[in-house]
Nucleic acid binder design. Structure first.
Lengths: 251, 251
DNA sequence: CGCGATTTTGATACTCATCAACGGAAGTGG
DNA sequence: CCACTTCCGTTGATGAGTATCAAAATCGCG
């Protein structure tokens, strides 16, 4: 049994997990952010009322499709989500990968439709937030409004990794390093992790041929920076990797 | 006499233009958007109270600098603004060009500091909006909040032009076409216009060598698509230009 | 096992960056 | 008015980096 598209609101809250986990869901970006700032319990209650835990989605499941009417954004609780578009030649362009704690759907607010497709790369669980309800609530909770502004502002300019005219080595290094850091930021291991995407997906995202990704990984392994075995990856020399990625990440 | 940085709020409203123009400033994105949606006059008054017309800035004037504390966003009323960063090798990376009607500073909300530099490419006039005041007002004006969300959401994914692995011809064509359309959207001529930036700036933005930009322009001229004379540009065959840009712009 | 997808490896081609040199426009100072 | 300078743009020759094509190796899975 697969979960419904994100666009479809769940008919009743019975489909959510038990309320206890929901109340203390540590991967829910908004709840956490608001808790951090010590907002009043009533407002938090309101916020939790518009959250739905959805999933699990399984590998290949569609979370939303380009053109679907925009109804909700979602924080990834577990798993990896890939967003992409199909160009007029029928070729896929990967726009991004979203790891636990990250928010999908923010770029859909303006056209009021999702401007890309989102699929699960593995087993994915989401926190779904009805956007109209959240925007309404934000008018009563300046802190929530600010968190939304923050999330949106953060995402502007996130394309630096794929935008610059960097070498293949720099791009792949920067990609691996950001994945590592994003995982670590959610309490997962940033030193040793599993890549849920293929070489083709990585290459597509970084605008490199999959063969090039493969060759770069081999180089990094030969240089003792990484240990790579299929999709299992271990960072052996973080300093060297960081140095390689430095120009991309502006550090 | 040059205008102050954007970060510095003007001490008194006497520095703004006459109130009459301000009230009907057609290039002010927010005022226009709110007027479109028929909000009440009182709220509009509030909105106009937090607008300051600043400028003129002259070519090379700094509008804000990377690291400046974030206090305001601004809509370009006239002229062209370039945003850029300096990497750790001392090289400039152009992030974008902002034409009349477009909003600068949106990516500064999160870190609460401007993450890049902004300079005037020619004579520039701005509408400055104090962001704290505007965010506060947005809690009372859902329409304004929505416009802000819309602006922010729009900017996410605007990097497609520089992100894709497109050919130099496609990139330059897409760049010229978007400039043309953005000018036309503000009532300016999209068929014949002046490029306020150098070949180096364009190349830097598109991640191409300035020589390559020059060569592409010559090719497009030889093919009868453009007439180029220094920075004066005329589009002769819009269909061909659009076709060249199609894959970049996903049309 | 045997099929398909993924990954790797090798050989070649092509786009674009780089280097170098020149031409031209605008501005400066005598 | 005329050198002189400087920045910008153009043009040509060369080379580096990566895509592409082709094929073998490996893994997952029915």
């Amino acid at each position: 049994m697969s979960s419904p598209r994100l666009g479809a609101s769940l008919p009743n809250p019975a489909a959510t997990d038990d309320g206890n986990e929901m109340r203390f869901c540590s991967t829910c970006a908004f709840s956490a952010a608001c808790l951090d700032q010590g907002y009043d319990k009533a407002a938090l209650g309101d916020l939790h009322c518009l959250v739905e835990h959805v999933g699990p989605y399984h590998e290949g499941d569609v979370i939303f499709r380009e053109g679907d009417p925009f109804t909700a954004i979602a924080a990834v609780r577990a798993g990896t989500v890939k967003t992409y578009v199909i160009d007029n030649h029928g070729d896929e362009h990967v726009l991004g990968f979203f790891l636990p704690g990250e928010v999908i759907g923010l770029n859909a607010i303006h056209p009021a439709r999702y401007p890309c497709n989102a699929v699960a790369m593995d087993t994915v669980a989401l926190c779904r937030f009805s956007f109209p309800q959240m925007a309404l609530l934000a008018t009563r909770m300046p802190g929530l409004q600010h968190q939304l502004f923050r999330l949106l502002s953060e995402d502007i300019g996130k394309a630096a990794l794929v935008a610059g005219d960097y070498s293949a080595d720099e791009r792949v290094s920067a990609f691996l390093l950001t994945v590592s850091r994003r995982l670590a930021a959610r309490g997962l291991s940033g030193r040793r992790f599993h890549l849920s995407m293929t070489r083709s997906d990585i290459g597509n995202y970084l605008r490199l041929a999959p063969e090039t990704v493969s060759r770069v990984l081999r180089r990094l392994q030969n240089d003792g920076i990484l240990a790579v075995e299929r999709r299992e990856l271990e960072i052996l020399d973080l300093d060297l990797l960081t140095a390689l990625a430095a120009s991309v990440l502006r550090e």
